[in-house]
Design a protein around this nucleic acid. Sequence first.
DNA 1: TTCAAGTTATTTATCGATATTTTTTGTAAT
DNA 2: ATTACAAAAAATATCGATAAATAACTTGAA
Lengths: 233, 233
Amino acid sequence: MAKTTTPPDQNGTKTLSDQAYQRLRSDIIHGVLQPDEKLRVEHLRQEYGVGASPLREALSRLTADGFVTAEGQRGFLVAPMSEEDLADITRLRILLEKQALCQSIESGDDAWESQIVAAFYQLEKVEESTDRDPVEWEVRNHDFHEALIAGCTSKWLRRFYSILYDQHKRYRNIALSTEIPRDLHQEHEELRNAALERDQKRAGDAIEHHILRTAEITQRVLREESLQKKERA
Amino acid sequence: MAKTTTPPDQNGTKTLSDQAYQRLRSDIIHGVLQPDEKLRVEHLRQEYGVGASPLREALSRLTADGFVTAEGQRGFLVAPMSEEDLADITRLRILLEKQALCQSIESGDDAWESQIVAAFYQLEKVEESTDRDPVEWEVRNHDFHEALIAGCTSKWLRRFYSILYDQHKRYRNIALSTEIPRDLHQEHEELRNAALERDQKRAGDAIEHHILRTAEITQRVLREESLQKKERA
DNA sequence: TTCAAGTTATTTATCGATATTTTTTGTAAT
DNA sequence: ATTACAAAAAATATCGATAAATAACTTGAA
């Protein structure tokens, strides 16, 4: 039978709140909206083409996620960034991703193994290509890490991990506006092998080392940036 | 100089959104709003005496916290409860509280020790009194656990732990409408001693054992309730 | 009786408007 | 100059109303 006239799916996501949420989240993670920047609802209205209500709902959710801070009656701000915060996120991400990975190794099946192999292959392709697209790499890297913990059935662990991964990603994006080449491939390979061999200890160490190394570089760039900032003042 | 007429602080918290958020959160945790219950904004408006906007903002935040689920264009629901979810929360709470406790033991100072002793004493008083007020106990229990991890400086660890603690509390409150007496005192004492002696291993084991035991009882009651539910159908 | 289609009714999601609150600007006095 | 105060401007938080979507109900036919 024929439906009325409206298409069932207007724009990928359903509600305007969701759209605003995803776009704001993405813009914060990718540095389009800078840390400590004031989020004026009136201004965002025009920019995003939605009303104040959906925006405020999206901002409320982002507040709970830690991407936005909301002060009393003084509106919303993009969450600040600091070395301490990065260190904090890093430490906790290691704890959670290690846990998720171990659970995954315990209960992962054949399909899980296949996904890891496939995701690693795609990531390898991007890492070894000459013209490395950073956006492409981000996607493949995320897919690989997701594949590793795909066997983890804990809803809450996934929820928290997902937040921390994106928080970490924000630091990477903001700090590495100048891309820094590094030999990640070796770490990814060790991670893949340890997982496929079901060696929890080795995989745990590998993921810890991998995250720590990534964070170190980000932290160094962050420190340099904040030094330059102080010099200007 | 004289201000206009309005008192500067209407009701403890500042915005109506915050008030609605806290009240909804509390009502969900304490079972006033039951799992899977539909949260009709129009109805809540009258009940809480606030407009739709602050309510929707509060519900959005609670969605991010996992106390409420929001489906597409079908409104808000109180988050469901299940044995699997309880097991999930329990496992992750152990991981996080253990971590927070160990960090706390490492960096806790004299004031931290004092707080633990004081909180334990107050908790002891409630536990040993003849007419045990469950609400009083909840507060003292929370204070004690907070005191134990007060030395933990990780903002993110605290944030996630706080959510899990309250999620756990919801299960306790819903399942233990009939209060079940149990010997918690011994476990609390072991926890206190291990912390004061700065024994991370012992404290970690104690907190794990303590949370597991609590969850077991809650789970048993939950199972009985769900069985009774099925019998009626 | 059961199923299906159309209609009514409820409720959600959104927008525009209003009243406070905060921030900024301007002015005068020390 | 600098501080203090007052007035204006901007922006926030909130409410009431409207349009769109879902759910409930009724009716009619197999």
